[in-house]
């Protein structure tokens, strides 16, 4: 395996066999994640509640606190993180320690791995059944040269199925595993997230807390706050399930726009109205980690 060879070509060439990458393990260096301080699984039974947004923003907030962060995008059918962090179109390369993740900033403080980097065209559909998805997730955990990380944030697809079981199985050897559950305030979303909490309990995952996203929209014209998707669902859910409630993040079109394009997200992010809410959540996670590790 020569250094610098693009991994994508090999992964896709191996596809017809039904196994991705063929003989993984052959170049496997044990303990690629051995040095990680804390692993945060970002989960939600419901789609479109902002798992990827919260993952990306949380990674940035932790970076602002001086931490080294990795992001593993386990949403194989709909990877959104590369676009949100302006890393779309970058390629993953091979080194002696495994696949080299994509670094989103020049200081190399955020390392990112996503199936989006392995696609030839961004619009290509990954039409895979469960077993292939599980195999790729295991590779993302075992074969990526993550380097020393303080935090690994794992963004997951909606639901409680193959990807989630594979992620939990692959990360279980690391004792510092916890789940962050994202919901929106309306009852329909909270219903799905209740099921996700049941999944956490059955899988023996520690729930760090619940984050309520998209709560309230402040009209830019008259500053009237409207609860577009109702209100209070996240806090009630946390109380019902007996887990900590970490905070609410408002609907913020500036942030949505920044995630989409325009300017440098890493620079713009602290100026957005959602930032205080998110940094407070990151602060709670930092404190919690400090107490569990000491």
């Amino acid at each position: 395996m020569t250094a610098g060879e693009c991994v994508a070509a090999r992964v896709w060439a191996a596809e017809p066999s039904g196994h991705i990458g063929g003989t993984w393990g052959a170049w496997l260096e044990p303990g690629n994640l051995a040095g990680v301080g804390r692993i945060l699984l970002v989960l939600s039974g419901k789609g479109g509640v902002g798992k990827s947004t919260v993952s990306a923003e949380l990674a940035l907030a932790l970076r602002h606190a001086g931490k080294k962060v990795g992001i593993l995008d386990a949403d194989l059918c709909g990877p959104s993180i590369p676009r949100m962090l302006r890393a779309q179109g970058r390629a993953v390369h091979q080194c002696d320690g495994g696949w080299v993740p994509v670094f989103v900033d020049p200081e190399k403080s955020i390392a990112l791995m996503s199936v989006g980097f392995l696609l030839e065209k961004p619009d290509e559909a990954v039409v895979w059944r469960g077993p292939k998805k599980s195999a790729l997730i295991k590779q993302f955990v075992r074969d990526v040269a993550w380097g020393p990380l303080d935090y690994l944030v794992v963004d997951t697809p909606p639901g409680t199925s193959d990807e989630h079981m594979a992620t939990v199985e692959a990360l279980r050897p690391y004792s510092c595993l916890g789940a962050l559950v994202v919901t929106t305030p309306q009852a329909v979303a909270v219903g799905d997230v209740r099921r996700e909490l049941t999944f956490c309990r059955k899988a023996g995952l520690q729930v760090i807390g619940v984050v309520e996203n998209m709560s309230g929209f402040v009209c830019p014209h008259c500053t009237e706050c409207t609860n577009v998707f109702s209100t209070g669902g996240g806090e009630e859910l946390a109380r019902h399930a007996g887990v900590p409630f970490l905070g609410s993040v408002p609907l913020d079109p500036t942030l949505a726009r920044s995630l989409e394009e325009g300017g440098d997200f890493i620079q713009d992010f602290p100026k957005s109205p959602a930032f205080p809410a998110l940094s407070a959540i990151a602060q709670k996670i930092l404190e919690q980690t400090a107490t569990t590790l000491s």
Partner: peptide, 18 residues
Amino acid sequence: GFVCPKCKKESQIFPPTT
């Protein structure tokens, strides 16, 4: 688009940037 129930002006919560 979202029409504010108070001032009836429209905002783009999920902006169609493309």
